[in-house]
Amino acid sequence: MYQFNYHKPASLADAAAALAKNPDAKALGGGQSLIASMKLRLSQPSDLVDLSGIAELRGIKADGGGVTIGAMTRHAEVAASAEVKKAIPALAALAAGIGDRMVRNMGTLGGSLANNDPAADYPAAVLGLGATVNTNKRKIPADQFFKGMYETALEAGEIITSVTFPAPKKAAYVKFRNPASRYALVGVFVADTAGGPRVAVTGAGPGVFRVPEMEKALAAKFSPESVAGVKVKADGLNSDLHASAEYRAHLVTVMAKRAVAAAG
């Protein structure tokens, strides 16, 4: 790890100011990706602005039929939350399956979304549920938030404050894990929402994406058979040691089918 300056502001305004002042500063959520990459000397921020001292970024509250979750809420807290389990059990289950126990006790919702790792789980839920990402500047609909590998709609100095998840009629997330890292090789979040069925896929491509053909088929009939025959094109999907684009494309269909079955 290289040297850096550490800041722990107590308010959102102070955090934004600290980030604005240093162009090479980085916001620190749970540090589950950033700290590891700094230890490997792959990342060299001049300043770390630790958001863990800002009370307003934490907590979970029921919100309409859904939930609003503070950006600094840990995965383990989401997994254990009675409100989340009641409103969106699939979201609690997703959080319970992120990484390992240590990652879940440290990692945060906002950190995961701002990082937008192509194999992260939360982006699938945010996109699959049609959630809204709230920042210190605006409200960003999920469909406009994710911009591809490690890219988001966040502007310099913009901080995620919370995410509002509307409750679906039913939903499920099914993940096929990379045998080594246990990240999602392919993860599919399906939800039957007020605005119609949504299918969001993580791990398979450079970033989370929806599958309109599957959504259309599910709108006609929300059943596993509806998606079983819908093939996803391998073009543009990730390809690595563990899974070719073809295999990933195949798994998208299988996982979608299993997610619909799990959603009931």
């Binding site: 990379n178 045998p179 080594a180 890292s181 990240y183 040691l241 563990h242």
Partner: peptide, 11 residues
Amino acid sequence: LLTGTYQDYAM
């Protein structure tokens, strides 16, 4: 070495 970390080498 393509499997130089636990991200890629499966124990």
